[in-house]
Simulated assay, not measured.
Amino acid sequence: MDKTQPHPLFKLATELGPLLVFFVANAKFHLFVATGAFMVAVVAAMVASYVVTRHVPLMALVSGTIVIVFGTLTLVLHDETFIKVKPTIIYGLFAAILGGGLLFGRSFIAILFDQMFNLTPPGWRILTRRWALFFLGLAVLNEIIWRTQSTDFWVAFKAFGVIPLTMVFAVTQMPLIKRFHLEPASLEASEAAEGDVSKG
Rank of each mutant, 00 (worst) to 15 (best):
F82Q: 11
F82I: 06
G17T: 00
P121M: 12
S198K: 01
L127F: 14
F29K: 14
G71Y: 08
V162G: 04
L20E: 05
H78Q: 13
M167C: 02
F32N: 02
T81Y: 06
L61N: 06
F38I: 01
F134M: 12
P8I: 12
W154K: 11
K178A: 05
R129T: 12
T4I: 10
S150A: 10
I83H: 11
K28L: 15
L141P: 09
G195I: 05
K84G: 04
M59W: 02
M167F: 03
T81N: 07
T120W: 10
V47P: 00
P87E: 06
D79F: 04
G100K: 02
F94I: 11
K199C: 10
E191M: 06
V51Q: 02
H30N: 15
A193C: 03
G101S: 08
Q5V: 13
F153E: 01
S186E: 13
V47T: 00
F160Y: 06
G200C: 11
L9Q: 09
M39L: 07
H55A: 01
P6Q: 04
L187T: 14
N26G: 14
M1C: 06
S107C: 04
L165F: 00
A96R: 09
T65H: 04
S186P: 08
A159S: 14
A139F: 03
A185P: 08
D196V: 15
E191K: 07
K28Y: 09
F23V: 00
S107E: 11
V62R: 05
E80N: 13
R179E: 09
F94R: 07
T151M: 15
Q173S: 13
F29H: 15
L165P: 00
Q5S: 14
P8W: 07
R179D: 05
Y91N: 15
M174C: 02
H7P: 03
K199H: 09
S198G: 05
R54I: 08
V140F: 04
V40S: 07
M174V: 12
M59E: 02
I163Y: 10
L98S: 13
P18D: 10
S49T: 12
D2K: 15
D152A: 14
Q173W: 05
L103A: 14
G123N: 12
A41H: 03
G100C: 04
P184Y: 10
E188P: 02
P175M: 05
G92S: 09
K199Y: 12
F29E: 12
A27V: 03
D2Q: 15
G100S: 08
L19I: 03
A189C: 09
L102R: 11
W146A: 01
F38A: 01
A193N: 05
K199V: 15
V168H: 05
